[in-house]
Design a protein around this nucleic acid. Structure first.
Length: 422
RNA sequence: GUGGGUAUGGCGCAGUUGGCUAGCGCGCCAGAUUGUGGCUCUGGAGGUCGUGGGUUCAACUCCCACUAUCCACCCCA
């Protein structure tokens, strides 16, 4: 197929038959976030490349091979945002939002771009719903964040049996350093048997050793030291209170000491939302060092992001919640006309019903026969219909028909009367 | 980046050992005594059979390359 009629690799057209589900998820997400005091923030689609190198981390896959980076006409290196946190952090610093009442709670829905091999649930353009809190270095903050995501999942009626909320603590920079040394030491004794990637992980990012799926490497994982055992007293207390808060909020969770997360900026709390098929549809954690790293005031921060495409793919498998269904576009009324004069009146009445009564109404605009108009009304799922012809105009009365049960009712031919009877 | 599957009208598919105007279902448009939907019937529009080469008298059907897509790995939302 010609390139002009082919969407780029890794992108997804959200057609009307599915787009409303995205709209519903987005609406509900923002609505719930607002209840907890998160205010929406919108940042640019592209940023200076350096922002992501500094925040996400030079050693991560995202920065090393997945970014859409280009030079603009003045030779500045820009990058399409591969995730939502860094741009928000940048905007917070640049606009002095930390001078507002703290903690500062922000949320966003944004497209992100990563040059990866497309796969089920993975696209090169995808969107995230994220929430971030600045200026709160407490376990309660982290628990509240997870509860927010959990509330969204519940509202979408995703059964608890089909996903898990996994939590872990990767400690503060101090105790993590000790842990990483221990981990390194542990893995070095098997150095000869490790795969090529793990050799580089050993020096660049030892925590990722736990992630390796190569059988010959993965077998060492079981006896590897666990980070929870290396958490210092403060970090252990933090994690304990965090879990207690989750229990208080009735958020079901599982401790998974192997979660490490792929982005450099995390510390202490990390968590993932994992589907039964292994698909991670959300994740987040605490990133106290990020603001300072980006040159802002040393401010603690925490947040999460949910992949909207993945959420939608999850809800596809289950009964659609009424919240989602109500976002579908189903006309309330169809007004058919016979002849020019009637067509004009149908057009006028439709317009009035929309403008004055907020009723979604359709009429014929292509000059079809009554039969064809009715057939069309049926296909759109319109709940009521009216046919207007010379007789109706002469008597100023028409038949209002309930398309589902075929019941009819005589109504005066004006928008006010029609609106009262549907 | 590695491995495997697939690529035929909008969607889902068939197409026999290469052969004559490429079919089917759904959908779409129109009609069935002239002003009414969902069933049925009839008719119609719509495809250079992913792209480019090659073999052949002849290729959707064989060979090569490329591209796209799906799945797995890697990684992540």
């Amino acid at each position: 197929m010609a390139a002009v009629t082919k969407a780029p690799r890794g992108t997804l057209d959200k057609l009307p038959s599915i787009a409303y589900k995205y709209r519903a998820v987005e609406n509900i997400a923002l609505e719930i976030a607002n209840l907890s005091g998160y205010r929406e923030i919108r940042t640019p689609v592209f940023e200076h490349t350096e922002l992501f190198r500094r925040s996400v981390g030079d050693t991560t896959d995202i920065v090393q091979k997945e970014m859409y980076t280009f030079d603009d006409k003045k030779g500045r290196s820009l990058t399409l945002k591969p995730e939502g946190t860094a741009p928000v952090a940048r905007a917070v610093i640049e606009n002095g939002l930390l001078n507002e009442a703290l903690p500062l709670k922000l949320c966003y829905i944004t497209n992100c771009y990563r040059y990866e091999a497309p796969q089920s649930g993975r696209y090169r353009e995808f969107s995230q719903f994220g929430a971030e809190v600045y200026g709160a270095n407490t376990p309660l903050c982290d628990a509240e964040l997870i509860a927010l995501a959990f509330t969204l999942i519940e509202r979408l009626q995703i059964p608890q049996s089909c996903y898990k909320i996994e939590v872990n603590s990767i400690g503060c920079p101090e105790c993590r350093k000790i842990y990483q040394d221990a981990l390194k030491k542990y893995y070095e004794q098997f150095k000869e048997e490790l795969c090529h990637d793990c050799h580089t992980r050993l020096t660049n990012n030892p925590m990722r050793l736990l992630d390796c799926k190569v059988p010959t490497c993965a077998k060492f994982k079981n006896d590897a030291p666990l980070i929870l055992e290396y958490n210092c007293d403060d970090c252990s207390d933090f994690f304990a209170t965090f879990k207690m808060a989750l229990e208080t909020l009735n958020v079901p969770y599982h401790v998974n000491p192997k979660i490490v997360r792929g982005l450099d900026y995390y510390c202490n709390t990390v968590f993932e939302f994992v589907c039964e098929n292994g698909l991670v549809f959300g994740g987040g954690g605490r990133y106290n060092g990020l603001m300072k790293e980006l040159g802002g005031a040393d401010t603690p921060a925490s947040g999460f992001a949910l992949g909207i495409e993945r959420i939608v793919s999850v809800i596809e498998g289950y009964a659609t919640s009424s919240d989602v269904q109500s976002t579908q576009n189903v006309p309330e009324m169809y007004i058919a006309g016979i002849g020019e004069q009637s067509a004009m009146l149908a057009l006028k009445l439709s317009h009035e019903l929309r403008e004055e009564y907020g009723i979604q109404c359709l009429c014929d605009i292509v000059g079809r026969s009554v039969k064809a108009q009715m057939r069309f009304a049926d296909k759109t799922g319109a709940k009521f219909s009216i046919v207007i012809g010379d007789d109706e105009i002469a008597n100023n009365v028409a038949t209002l028909k309930n398309m589902e049960n075929k019941e009819t009712l005589e109504v005066t031919l004006n928008a006010s009367e029609i609106s009262k009877n549907i």
